[in-house]
Amino acid sequence: MRRPDAVGWSKPLVALLALMPLVLLVLAVLHDTLGPDPVSRLEKHTGIWALRLLLLTLAITPLRRITGWSALLRYRRMLGLFTFFYATVHLTVYLVIDLGGFWSQIFTEIAKKPYITVGFAAWLLLIPLALTSTRGMMRRLGRRWGQLHKLVYLIGVLAVLHYLWQVKFGQTIAVRQPVVYAAILAALLLARWRPRRQAMAISARRAPGRSPAPAPPP
């Protein structure tokens, strides 16, 4: 085991930061400051944080390229797992607290409301990514790990769609938030296009055969 360096030390701090939104939500529940419809606020905030963490996770690769600070990569798994964590809390709030008592409705809800179908699909796709996030799984899957984890792009698109779709009629004009998230996602995905060919060129120039760890997904 290697001794923790600056990144190693800062990781618990980043984890604590990532937990703060949930802590604040729990406090808000305890102090009854979530307004008249606390359930919808819980749904909204847990969902937003899942999306924010997803975008942060997706920002690591471009940020690393811009700053040249490759240690950033070491935060990525944790951010990805927190994405899954908030998405799961989000879904749990919806299923257990919001739909509570109307379990029979769950399947019709998931199947019939397009934004719920899409959101649920995004959560389902996060599961294999979370399950294969361990070092052991990375090693075992090898190249296929990178291919599997490209699913995160699809998840991003589904998550943004899930958000855009439920903006109430008329608010498309007044509320820009979901559009901003969609734009950030688009920028993060676009940032991967051209430099990828460069990356391929770089790796082609490298001596083949010696790769220290499984290649990070693009």
Binding site: G100, F102, K113, P114
Partner: peptide, 26 residues
């Protein structure tokens, strides 16, 4: 129902103001 909402159930906002559970009614 009108997309994207279904109208089978509703969340009742009533009573003490604080209630996380059991707000949904037919």
């Amino acid at each position: 129902g009108t997309v994207p909402w279904s109208q089978h159930t509703e969340r009742r906002i009533a009573g003490a103001g604080f209630s996380l559970f059991g707000n949904r009614i037919a």
